[in-house]
Amino acid sequence: MRIYFRLNDEPTEIDVDPADLLVDVLRLKLGLRGARPGCLQGQCGSCTVLFNGMLAATCMIPAFRAYGAEILTIEGLMQRREYQDIDRGFERAGTRPCRFCAAGKYLSVHALLSSSSDLSDESIHDTLAGVWCRCTTHERLVRGIRYAADYRQRRRQRGG
């Protein structure tokens, strides 16, 4: 089956078996290895992408569902200025996600900062609950998210 979708802002078309998991299509057919298969039950966050603007576990998406979708992977986010805000925020907080959870953490924070200005403990907790990996401490991550929000706001005020 041939599917068409937008991947990291680029129109993409590819032949897939509709039953393949999107995480495998991204990694094995498109060479995007940032989304990693972990629990394969949508719980651990390591295979996260933004799917039509929503956080989504690619191990819970069959390939046919990607038809017409808009997908942003960690590789696509890295090309954007928003990534630098998050990266600087994490760095300032003294934390750096490992390769297993980077997709989940960066994209979750990006989704949080893009969807609302609500940085309550509840919304941050909800965001981090979707990524199981504890290679970084919770407190530093929370601090990193608040720094990232600050960097993003300052950049926007400068018109960047």
Partner: peptide
């Protein structure tokens, strides 16, 4: 998908996607 046993979606002969 949470009920699947393999590393692929177990699809029947016909699927209607509501997307």
């Amino acid at each position: 998908l949470s009920q699947r046993t393999g590393r692929f979606a177990e699809l029947p002969a016909t699927v209607v996607s509501l997307q």
